[in-house]
Design a protein around this nucleic acid. Sequence first.
RNA 1: GGAGAGGUGCCAGAGUGGUCGAAUGGGGCGGCCUGCUAAGCCGUUGUAGGAGUAUUCCUACCCAGGGUUCGAAUCCCUGUCUCUCCGCCA
Length: 421
Amino acid sequence: MLDLKFIRENPDAVRKAVADKREKADVDALLELDVKRREMIGKVESARAEQNKATQKIAQMKKAGEDASPAIAEMRRLSDSIKEMNDQLKEIEAQIYELQIRIPNIPDASVPVGGEQDNEVVKTWGELPEQDFQPLPHYEIAEKLGLIDFARASRMSGSFFVSYRGLGAKLERALINFMIDMHVEKHGYTEIFPPFVVKREAMFATGQLPKLEEDMYHCELDDLFLIPTAEVPVTNLHREEIVDGNALPIKYTAYTPCFRREAGAYGKDTRGLMRIHQFNKVEMVKFVRPEDSWDELELLLQNAEDVLQALDLPYRVLTLATGDLSFAAAKCYDIEVYAKGLDKWLEVSSCSNFLDFQARRANIRFRREKGGKPEFVHTLNGSGLALPRTVIAIMENYQTDEGTIVVPPALRPYMGVDIIK
RNA sequence: GGAGAGGUGCCAGAGUGGUCGAAUGGGGCGGCCUGCUAAGCCGUUGUAGGAGUAUUCCUACCCAGGGUUCGAAUCCCUGUCUCUCCGCCA
């Protein structure tokens, strides 16, 4: 969330951000209410100051054994009016809050303005696979080799759920371990294994709520949500904390399953692993000093790219245009892996800098030095990587004309076999 | 699931409804003292909002939200979290 003071002082930048991100948020109504709010605060606080003085006088009178009842009667009236004014103030503040939480983060100047078609390819890595035959799409080869059971998963859980089997299941486990190990051992992240279910406040802190309630699985009885990404529990680890400035940057990596209802997404990417309600993902989350966050974003992107490079999967990196940028992000790189069977570029990672937007919502601060003023940290996160589409790329790009799948060399220690047949 | 106890400042911990932003101790910071260290002594030690160029002033905050009262850390209600015991359970 943005600072009210910032909105007040930079209304045009905020209006532009709302428009560029295609959000619906009423900045002008917010500014009007802000003026009213400060007026009300002035009134309420001076009345309170008066009340505080009078109340002390009453205490003294009572101590001295004097009759305080006229003063008390007088104060009753003041007290009532304070209550009334305070209710009005609370009402105004509630309205402000409702508007404020719907204002998105401001895109960085380096972000192209526009929609999906304006995303910019900033880099491409690797050679497109050159098989002399057309590999089968992953859902066909996976079915043939008995790696994924689509039909049975649907029977028990509905469509868009899958069940992995045999080496298919092992491939999931291998990828998770491979990625986590790389981030811990090579990139210096600390591994976290968080809860997969969180409270409403946690979802609010990272910006999933209020906007994305429809997209999440919700347990009504307990008002708990299944996490759509590890970003939520891992970022919330430090909610309402003042972390030690010397501990920054804090770097966490976590494997979690991710649950998404994908409401309204039916009819798109309907086959195979492209879009499923439950999938596995390894995530990286960083808490950094404000002045470091742009450099840290580049490093984060590099950490995610390293996974694809180690697996020797070709990919490209896009800078998302404003309209494609998520609510809380200031800038986001998407990494898309190339999958030969589908002949498509598939998003496997989003690496975002949120600046202090999440930190303000989640109240995560740090001190530069002992006794210093607490400041908001900057938060970043990126997938490293989402598994299903990585699996698609492996199954398709590493397919042989004999209908087998070669295991990428880097994964062999984790798989125990060189080839899936 | 049942029963109980409790959430106070960086930490520990006190607090008859009125002068409590809050005793006391520890820690931290600054200073004094002392060959060094230790001990000792003195001072200091929160967050947020509003007004003003500013020294500054005001307001709020003792888990959160309501309520009672002229006045609430203190009384009442609800929520939440922690702990203990019983039951159940991977």
